[in-house]
């Protein structure tokens, strides 16, 4: 029998909140309807705390904490939307927009893009940093799907869903820093991958238009993620 779950009480944005001891700040906040911006996090996948958008302030500490991986503690006082945090989040988004070539007007995910929505929600009106305009490739060698590296934000959701849920581990990351990019198998065209099962999970967890289905035109690509919480629940029930 599982040990009894303890409940921790804390304050999020000055609101009293109760949460299970194994919950993260992000989950505890979501339970009471407080939204913390996220990009790399997705329910049903492991969390790496990579995008830094969910950073929150915790009273008594000068450090910022990633809400997606920080567990709740008794008496914690969390602030999720101070001006300082909003500024940081906006700058991080600006850095992302400047990093590769994100052109909403010609994107299949226009209107259904998490990056775009985040920018709108956080009031990002323009990018202060010089655009890098890197030369990125588009791999359309797969019979059903396309990866457009111009739109990739390196959230690694595709890598994680492929490894943790599908079990194929077709995707991985290669290279360091600005040269980092997602690859299929041993950095070969997607269409020649031996491990890819063409399940399409990667396409549907991708927050932007980097991964999309062939035959979709601008603004048509809707991502369907219902399978993830479902699979997660089924697996928890079984174990």
């Amino acid at each position: 029998m599982a040990p009894p779950t303890r409940v921790k009480t804390l304050k999020i944005n000055n609101r009293d909140v109760g949460a299970r001891q194994d919950e993260t700040i992000l989950e505890a906040a979501a339970d009471v309807g407080i939204t913390i911006p996220t990009l790399c996090q997705l329910d049903g996948l492991s969390n790496g705390g990579a995008c830094r958008l969910c950073l929150v302030e915790v009273k008594g500490s000068s450090r910022l904490y990633p809400a997606c991986v920080t567990r709740v503690e008794e008496g914690m006082e969390v602030l999720t939307n101070t001006e300082r945090l909003t500024n940081y989040r906006r700058m991080i988004l600006e850095l992302l927009f400047a990093e590769r070539n994100h052109i909403c007007a010609v994107c299949v995910s226009n209107g259904h893009c998490e990056l775009q929505t985040l920018a709108q929600d956080l009031g990002m009106t323009h990018v202060h940093f010089p655009y890098r305009h890197p030369h990125m490739v588009v791999d359309a060698s797969h019979e059903r799907f396309v990866i457009d590296h111009n739109r990739c934000v390196l959230c690694t959701r595709c890598v994680r869903v492929c490894d943790e849920v599908e079990g194929a581990h077709t995707w991985d990351v290669m290279g360091r820093g600005m040269d980092a990019r997602v690859i299929t198998d041993l950095s070969q065209p997607w269409g020649t991958s031996d491990t890819c099962t063409s399940c399409g999970k990667c396409v549907h967890v991708c927050p932007t238009g980097a991964l999309f289905e062939k035959g979709k035109s601008v603004a048509e690509m809707l991502k369907k993620r219902q399978f993830l919480p479902y699979l997660k629940l089924m697996r928890e029930e079984r174990s």
Binding site: G49, A98, G177, A180
Partner: peptide, 21 residues
Amino acid sequence: CMTESCGKCIPCRVGTVQMHE
């Protein structure tokens, strides 16, 4: 730092490039 950043988190991966520039 720019060339040694692993590329995992955005501030370090892109921020160092912009600072270098």
